[in-house]
Nucleic acid binder design. Structure first.
Lengths: 208, 208
DNA sequence: AGGGCTCTCAGCCATTTGGCTGATACGGCT
DNA sequence: AGCCGTATCAGCCAAATGGCTGAGAGCCCT
């Protein structure tokens, strides 16, 4: 039987080594290449056409994981992409699945979980770490809490520490509109002040 | 020649595997044990008395890396402790060095850097990743920007999104005093609003 | 055509925050 | 004893923020 070919994408060498060592114990899984950036990932996919791409979302400067997923899916849809990352950030999960990820694993997942996810991915099965799945489920249950694109944009700038006036100037809208958006954001995030919104956003949405 | 005995502490199995794989290539370095939590790290140190402890700061629930460093140094000062983590947060660096860490490496360090750090550590040399060293240097150069303990405490609570009133209640001081501290914090962080202070604090101090 | 969502803006008012000045108290250092 | 840093508190005032109501325009979907 043919082994499942895998490409590892992570900007940390130790993580790639660790995955390679772990996956090396499985005869039916074959790590054929590694990449340390989104750009490199695209090249390796072209070269090797791996069956599965295991990818960290957080990568240094340049293309991030989400963008890499999108590009891989666009030009070469045959790969199953597994996200393998440290954080179970709501926004990341949604964006990764949206971009075309087949599964979302946390880095503290047990080896068996990882193996199962890779084997499942080639068969078109979607795999999530339990904590990730429960978060996704919550999101689906509470559509009220999903920010509109404009609100997300504003929230992102909010975490830069801008004032209402500055937000308005940056987005070419009046301060009144800024306040309206903010009020909606607060309601959706379940907070009452801008400070709490920033704290929530940075911590929970992974806006580092 | 006797190999350098090493204990790996990281809550992520893949990271431990990766480090083990990397360090396994060096004949003079011998990984004698692994731990996935601060508590476990203490036990392993007792059991194996490794020459070097390579430790991640961020670990799941329970004892964090800083606390683990402190405890190891307290009861058994013979180990050289190397911090090996993802973030170059100012606060973490200072606290880790304060707790007794010999060096501070980032996870994207080159293998040679890691080997050199371990070898240097047993000889009492202090090793820092270049970006880490430069941050520390900046801290030393700008003593004006170092927060007092009370200010740091307040800033920490600030990132929870509390109001001045709540801050006062939590710290058993008047709102007036809270405002005084805040003004000092803003000046030291070089910001003008609480929002910017929170953003700066969370991003730069690693207050996740 | 109508309903719903998003984005935009306005005005009013209460609360919060920030800037400023000045003050007291304690501890350590010289 | 005197100085400095830290921590505490007060009062005043301007600016920013948040809560509320209401409203028009564009868009998509049925």
């Amino acid at each position: 039987m043919n082994a499942i070919t895998v490409l590892l994408v992570d900007d940390h060498l130790v993580v790639r080594s660790g995955l390679r060592a772990l996956l090396g114990t499985q005869p039916d899984i074959d790590v054929v290449a590694e990449a340390s950036s989104g750009e490199e990932a695209l090249e390796r996919v072209q070269e090797h056409s791996p069956a599965v791409v295991v990818m960290d979302l957080a990568m240094g400067p340049g293309m991030d994981g989400i963008e890499a997923i999108r590009r891989i899916r666009e030009r070469n849809g045959r790969q199953a992409i597994l996200v393998f990352t440290t954080y179970d950030s709501d926004a990341d999960i949604v964006r990764a699945v949206d971009a075309g990820a087949m599964g979302y694993l946390l880095k503290d997942a047990a080896p068996e979980e990882i193996f199962a996810a890779i084997r499942g991915a080639v068969q078109g099965k979607s795999v999530m770490s339990p904590p990730v799945a429960s978060r996704l489920f919550q999101q689906l249950r509470n559509p009220d809490e999903i920010l509109t694109p404009r609100e997300a944009e504003l929230l992102s700038l909010l975490t830069e520490g801008l004032s209402n006036r500055e937000l308005g100037q940056r987005l070419f809208i009046s301060e009144a509109t800024v306040k309206t958006h903010l009020a909606h954001i607060y309601a959706k995030l379940g907070v009452e002040t801008r400070a709490a919104a920033i704290a929530t956003a940075i911590r929970r949405e992974g806006m580092r």
